[in-house]
């Protein structure tokens, strides 16, 4: 096919897609229409989308306050069209506590990475959970420090190569991956802990449902919820996006099995 014909065909396809009747997907109105800074293939953009779809579907955009601490998603406030606070590294659960306690009828969520939630912020996370703070924690677990370009995280799985575990994580030297979801599930203040993924269309749908459940539990003031999302980091894993999603499926998920870890007793 020559170049001219190719361009013509592409134009026709683009025009067809842009016809409203042909649309199968729309950007949720709660997600700001600008280019994201995330790397191609990164799970953050998918999680942003489903989170904001839930906010739109529940009609809580004007009653939701988000907290984005240090990590790749520190700029989440550029994309999520709700009131937001940027927090210091690891302190999101403390900041969210401050917000929720003075505005108990608002929906409050944090959006944290593994280094933030399970290393520097472990104390704030555990104590917010143990107090039963009525908030939702979205926890992106990709086993690596993305923002600082690929260092070992508390959730890096044994043998995984990072810039600070160049020979693979050696649990004898660097300790074991922290399964913080299972740990938090032991606490009485916690109502809902689930582990999800966004590496396939089916998993995306399940993950969205989990986020929706968590907001509904928050509305019923049932306590602390966390949706852990096993995700990828194509850039720092040094993989193409498709390859990284296969790594999630074949290597990450076997170590971090998906599913509910704790569900509220009163449904």
């Amino acid at each position: 096919m020559n170049q001219e014909v190719l361009e013509k065909n592409l134009t026709v396809v683009e025009e067809d897609i842009c016809i409203r009747e042909n649309l199968v997907y729309e950007r949720p109105s709660t997600l700001i229409d600008i280019e994201m800074h995330y790397c191609p293939g990164c799970g953050h953009s998918t999680v942003h989308k489903i989170l904001m779809e839930v906010v739109q579907e529940l009609g809580i955009q004007n009653d939701t306050i988000g907290v984005a601490p240090v990590g790749c998603s520190v700029f989440a406030y550029h994309y999520l069209d709700v009131d937001m606070q940027q927090a210091a590294h690891g302190r999101a659960c403390a900041v969210a506590t401050g917000i929720k306690r003075v505005l108990p009828d608002k929906y409050v969520f944090t959006y944290q990475g593994d280094g933030d939630l399970a290393a520097i912020g472990t104390g704030e996370t555990i104590h917010a959970a143990n107090r039963g703070e009525n908030i939702l924690v979205i926890f992106i677990n990709n086993g690596i420090y993305g923002m600082t370009s690929g260092q070992m995280a508390p959730t890096t799985i044994p043998g995984m190569v990072t810039t600070t575990s160049p020979y693979g994580r050696d649990v004898e030297v660097q300790g074991h991956p922290l399964k913080i979801g299972e740990l938090l599930a032991l606490l009485p203040g916690v109502c809902y802990i689930t582990r999800q993924a966004v590496n396939s269309a089916a998993n995306v749908r399940k993950c969205k449902k989990a986020i929706k459940n968590a907001f509904e539990y928050q509305k019923r003031k049932l306590g602390f919820s966390m949706v852990e999302i096993v995700s990828n980091c194509p850039s720092n894993w040094k993989m193409a996006p498709v390859e990284s999603n296969k790594y999630v499926e074949n290597t990450m998920i076997p170590y971090y099995p998906l599913g509910d870890i704790k569900v509220p007793e009163v449904k």
Binding site: V67, Q85, A94, V95, T97, G98, V102
Partner: peptide, 14 residues
């Protein structure tokens, strides 16, 4: 105290 000052940040921000 680390948590306390960050709770202050959150509530002051409201």
């Amino acid at each position: 105290e680390v948590a306390a000052i960050n709770m202050i940040y959150g509530a002051a921000g409201c």
